[in-house]
Design a protein around this nucleic acid. Structure first.
Lengths: 237, 237
DNA sequence: GCTTGTGAACGGGTTCACAGCT
DNA sequence: AGCTGTGAACCCGTTCACAAGC
């Protein structure tokens, strides 16, 4: 049905961040022009993006920071608690677990998983690292919503499959690989009515955060500056 | 000339990764259909993306992995050495510095910078952490091409400005803030001919890697699954 | 026959101009 | 007057169908 550009969602996140900054500076009102400048987009864009979700401003006046912020929080689904597990507790996984800002919005790290005997059993950020074999039971018992995947690339597909089998609804994939339903080995699926392989993936959302890709895009645009990058969405990874 | 979708560049990076995997499995040939399946896009898309840069296949035959890989490396600018500094050597900066895969393509970390007295002087990955005041001289003397920005959000704008003043050509920004030329405080610029404030940013490419944003996008799409996210594992038949 | 390469059609996202409210 | 909200125009990226070549 609805047609909301995915890029608009990324921008909403940016607007929200800016509103928080404004609130921190005790600035109570803003405008599409002001937000646009701070976000690095056009004022048209700001108004259009907001219009997808409602009418949050006052004509002639602009937006009140507190109200618009509250609305964006609601729109983005940040007014609920999200239970998160991190799979892969190496340097990157630990950096993520300790990065400030996640808990601001009720993202709660409830479990850490790894396979390494050196890590399993250790405490990281008040949590005991568990073996990945325990993932499925843990996700069920703790109502886990999403998994962050920070394992080495060669383990990413298996770990992703484990997360999906365990029943998470979304994966934030930090590994530099495409994860998804495993391709049927032989010929492509000739859907004969019964359960498709990979169907568990149907309802799972995957979002990628790939800094190696960002690095390579950067290299490209430095050498080809004429094709200027519109503050690229790490969107399509 | 300059009409290459930025999304196409992201996909080229993905294709390249897939080609490396194929090479690792000693698979010598592939096709647009095969690449498309593995990348999670359509075969049309693969062919169109490649067509922006040349003709790399053989009709009726497909692509040879080694050749296509070599061409993508060239197109993306990965056949040269890139000297990189990391600004911000906290947990995230260290995780980046130690993440494998960067050096595969001649990305060389040549300098680490921070302001914290506890970090400056310490050794991380064979490099001594320097104070950020030394950045400008260092960038000049070491022909630094790009800077990775892994400082806390409140320091990001200043650190970015320091990188730009120092003369880097690109910034990979891990901080969850929009960085850019500082807005003139008073009224907007009335370009009166002389040097604009923020002009040093003209030629600088900024690429963002923001996992907090990814997390929030994920929350949104979990709650609104109908608006399916294109980065997802959909394999357009 | 099979797979690439590409001009053209299509569709969706951004830009615009202006209507509508304060 | 000032700024938001929005239908319509525009433009760009994706999809398509088919021509070109092995």
């Amino acid at each position: 049905m609805s047609e909301i550009p995915t890029a608009a969602i990324s921008r909403l996140v940016t607007y929200l961040r800016i509103l928080e900054q404004l609130e921190g500076q005790e600035i109570a009102r803003t405008s599409s022009t002001d937000l646009a400048e701070r976000a690095g987009v056009s004022a048209f864009q700001v108004r259009k993006d907001l219009a997808y979700f409602g009418r949050f401003g006052t004509r002639g006046m602009g937006y009140t920071v507190a109200l618009l912020k509250r609305e964006l929080v609601r729109v983005l689904g940040l007014n609920q608690t999200w239970n998160v597990v991190i799979v892969g507790v190496g340097r990157l996984g630990q950096a993520i677990a300790n990065y400030p800002g996640a808990s601001d919005y009720q993202f709660q790290y409830v479990g850490l998983f790894d396979v390494s005997p050196e890590l399993v059993g250790r405490q990281v950020r008040q949590l005991t690292v568990r073996h990945i074999d325990e993932l499925k039971d843990f996700v069920r018992d703790n109502k886990v919503d999403m998994g962050f995947l920070a394992v080495p690339p060669e383990r990413a597909q298996d770990a992703a499959q484990a997360l999906v089998d365990a029943g998470v609804r979304g994966i934030l994939n930090f590994a530099p690989v495409v994860i998804g339903p495993r391709l049927p080995e032989g010929r492509p699926s000739e859907g004969s009515g019964q359960q498709e392989i990979g169907d568990e993936w149907r309802a799972v959302i995957v979002e990628n955060v790939d800094f190696l890709a960002g690095m390579k895009r950067l290299a490209f645009y430095i050498r080809n500056p004429l094709l200027k990058d519109p503050t690229g969405p790490e969107t399509p990874a």
